[in-house]
Amino acid sequence: MIECKKLSRDFKIYTKKAGLAGTLQAFFKRTYYINQAVKDFDLNLDSHGLIGLLGPNGSGKTTLMKMFTGIIVPSRGTVEVLGEVPSKRKNSFKRNISLVMGNKSQVWWDIPAMDSFLLFQRYYEIEEKDFKRRVNDLGERLNIKSLLQVPVRKLSLGERMKVELMACLLHEPKVIFLDEPTIGLDIASQKNVRQFLKDYYEEKKPLIVLTSHYMADVEALCEKIILIVKGEKRFDGSIEGFKEGFRKEKTIVFNFDEAIANFPEKWRERFYCDWNQDKTQLRIRVPEKELKSVTVEILNQYSVSDFHTEKVSVEEVMDDILSHH
């Protein structure tokens, strides 16, 4: 469904020194550098699945999505989506894909969303009865039916994102690209969008490729993760494999009967320790092979009321990766 080999994209970036002298100098003589946004990226994805595309800011996630949708043309390498070369921009291809960008809107700003949807109905030649059914169904699921008659600029950020999702799903695409669909949303709206995407995927089984800065999105939704750092693929596999591959560590949470004033320096130096404010709870990350010895030692030295281990979250793994780049 998506296959790319040695896919690369370069951007020529213009730089200038600050200040008037720099401005005048740059007017007559420009200096550029080549930014390799995506480098030799190989990928093979099936016809359905919920895939998380992860990476820090500027790692090339959005560039990759833009190449998959045909918005920009690769500098090198090949890519095929649904058996077509996206950059040829064939209408038959465009009819089967969709892209939502958290920071850009495709619905008209000053008019109600329903008017934009009517336009999309014409773009995608959706039969009247199918259109009505889909608007009704998606409107109900996203709980925005009553807002479809309100000008988009009057909607909240969360409501606007739901409208964007609706707009991208009206033609029932086979491949859906979601670039930061929950950016800027509050916790409740994020949960709503997540749940909606989960239900939609269960019912229609499309291929959904999702980028997000919120690891909760990825953990809640994705079956598979692709990690991209500085334009290069660093991981391609399951969430569990992702966590395992990057850290053989576990978090142990201890609750103490009383506040701990003096915790041994040797542990603070070796392990990541996170105390609560009144020093009665400790979260300590230790390598799996030391799990037993550290637990025994703490249990022997302090009065512990309760303890348990936690799985390392994707967020913690990402924190680690980002701190090393």
């Binding site: 918005i71 465009k94 969709s98 850009k104 495709q106 773009y123």
Partner: peptide, 15 residues
């Protein structure tokens, strides 16, 4: 300038 041409490129009609 803003990159909103993206959505025109995605529509199944000649850009």
């Amino acid at each position: 300038i803003l990159g909103t041409l993206d959505f025109q490129l995605l529509k199944p009609f000649p850009t």
